[in-house]
Design a protein around this nucleic acid. Structure first.
Lengths: 89, 89
DNA sequence: TCCATTAATTTAAACATTTCAATGTATTAT
DNA sequence: ATAATACATTGAAATGTTTAAATTAATGGA
């Protein structure tokens, strides 16, 4: 297991707002960036910043559909994280 | 599952040095703070700072034995993290 | 084309984290 | 007692993160 990957994913998760974005994606199945602005009450640039960290780390998956960016959970990453911590437990 | 707990643990893990401390604890079973200074090449106060974050977050367990602090992995926390990510995958 | 919409980027500020030297505290050994 | 050891705390500098206003880029519709 690549520790740099774990570190980056952990960093993405280690933020109140980003964790709430993750949980909302889990709840809704998918989100668009505009939705994130609404329920977090953060500005659009701030949301863009957080979404970038989540996507770059591999925690979320993004797909552009016209001018709309759709965010979904990267379940493969969740599986890898689960396995990593399972091995340590 | 308490998200604040996840966030705090993720934060503890989201650092190169702290992650390497965790892996060394896993490898050796237990460590004392002095060992951490050696293998990380960090100063004693810096190690004390990182160890505090790891212990406060519940990732590591510490027990004082005279003037020596022994660090071990909190496997219960690893189990909880594993379960959290399993549920998301 | 021109305008509205959605998101990314730039910039700068406020804030938080990391780091170590110096110092303090607690414990052990002489 | 005194000195040495192991770790914690304080304080300050360097660095990194978060945030939003302003701007830019890209897409879709009238």
């Amino acid at each position: 297991m690549d520790l740099a990957l774990i570190e980056k994913a952990a960093n993405a998760i280690a933020d109140k707002h980003r964790l709430s974005i993750i949980m909302e994606v889990v709840k809704k199945g998918k989100l668009i960036c505009g939705d994130v602005c609404e329920f977090t009450c953060l500005s659009q640039p701030t949301v863009s910043h957080h979404v970038k960290i989540l996507v770059d780390s591999g925690v979320l998956h993004s797909s552009k559909n016209g001018r709309i960016v759709e965010l979904t959970l990267n379940k493969e990453m969740m599986k890898q994280l689960s396995m990593f911590f399972l091995q340590l437990s």
